[in-house]
Amino acid sequence: MKREDLSGYIDGELSDAQRIQVERALTDEDAEKLQTYKQITESVSEAPKPPQSFTSSVMQYVIQQTESVNNVPIKHKHTFARFVPVAAGLVLVVGIALFANSFLFGNDKSANAPQLPPEYATANTSESDYESSLDKGIVTGAGTEEGASFDYANAGSSTDEYSTDSVADEPKPVAPQATSVPEAAPAEAATPADDAKTDTPESPAAAAPAPPANIEIADANAQFYAIIYVTGELPPALSSYPLEPSERGDAELQIPREVADELAALGYETVSVNPDSETALVIYSK
């Protein structure tokens, strides 16, 4: 009798002939071993039941999934606080670039160039990884927690188009009810003024209507189609992608734009960046 046969015997994995052979050859020691095997099986197979709420929470999730797939457009959950550092960092970079441009190339508009609001000037720039991929383009859009109405596209080009004085006074903007990213619709954010168009006539992102999303940052030179923030459980759509730990302690992964659209449709927080790019970036944290 082979050693594996005893194990196969209690698992019911032997043929009738093998089973009879094992039973005939069984010694006292084998019988004791079989007894211990059974104890092992009983012990390892014992497990507590899931919490009572388990079934209902699964079904709730399942129904939510069904509804989110069936209901188009989908109302995204917006947490604007998370985008403030990104937006502020981008504004800072663009501001610095415009100032540098004014000084280096003697732009006579520099005298009238607007100063960045203090909250942007002191903003957290921890998203510098992404700024590096964004700092060459035109930035349009708005959406900060403070309700600032700041036409980034026109900053530094025309004081008429620029306004920061409403930061404290105006009511908070209503979070845009974004539809899924791929379904392009005229975007309010992508309405650059003439000056901006003159500055970057080659920028398709500035001219083309961008799909509405949580935040629109049109940048034709940016590396990513969108940046998507995912927290908690990794959605099934991402389970096959390798997560790369980032320096910030979270994880990143690059995904095709189709998957990004899928995540946006599921309500994950999305910053649309370059509508021409084929790759999106997911920032994942537990």
Partner: peptide, 25 residues
């Protein structure tokens, strides 16, 4: 499903999360 996840992960919360994810997936 929960029992298997619990035995493999040795953490009740992780097991619940995985079990839930399995059913949704």
């Amino acid at each position: 499903i929960y029992g298997l996840a619990l035995k493999l992960l040795h953490n009740a919360q992780d097991a619940e999360d995985i079990a839930q994810e399995v059913f949704v997936k």
